[in-house]
Amino acid sequence: MPKTVMQLVLIGFAFLSLSVLADPAKVYTTCAACHGDKGQGNPQLQGPVLAGLSGEYLTRQLQAFQQGKRGQHPQDVPGQQMAAMAKSLLSEETDLAALSAYIEQMPLPQQSTRLSGDLKSGNAYYQNNCGACHGGQGQGNPAFQAPRLAGQDSDYLRRQFMYFKRGIRGTDKSDKPGRQMAMMANTLPDDKLNDVLAFIGSL
């Protein structure tokens, strides 16, 4: 999205958000511009799928964006955008838990485009490197604060994985799940990432 349009959208929603702090459905209209009206995401805007993510995970990420623990790194441009939105549009009074709960109950997204890759290899590396926390079917596991991966946009997953691997995400001392993921991102052989993403896309 061109920068000017983004700014306009930003300003527009800023006014809107002031009046609708209480109702998560109304607050969500702010998010829908990039994440879709059903939380289905928007790959063109690099907005990840939100439907299917747990309220706990969403709240934690929103707080991380607000508090400057995520979306600060100069190489994480979409993260910077999200951090700006989280700070400006979601005021301190916004009930993040209510917003997250609202998103959590959105129906699971339909499958998007399939990535090509070796699914057998992807399954093996997924089960061995990822499944212990994210679940055998990519369903996520609240016991490890591990988000759902199934149904998520492959480009977003690849981008975040590389952020973890390169020290762009998951470095804040208070972000333990992020640091855990950063450690695991370094265990997957580089040439297997595409297969794993293809496997997740097939779930």
């Binding site: 490197n129 212990a132 926390c133 490890f144 855990q180 695991m184």
Partner: peptide, 9 residues
């Protein structure tokens, strides 16, 4: 789970 996962956790 693999030991490297346990190490990360």
């Amino acid at each position: 789970p693999p030991v490297q996962v346990i190490q990360a956790l």
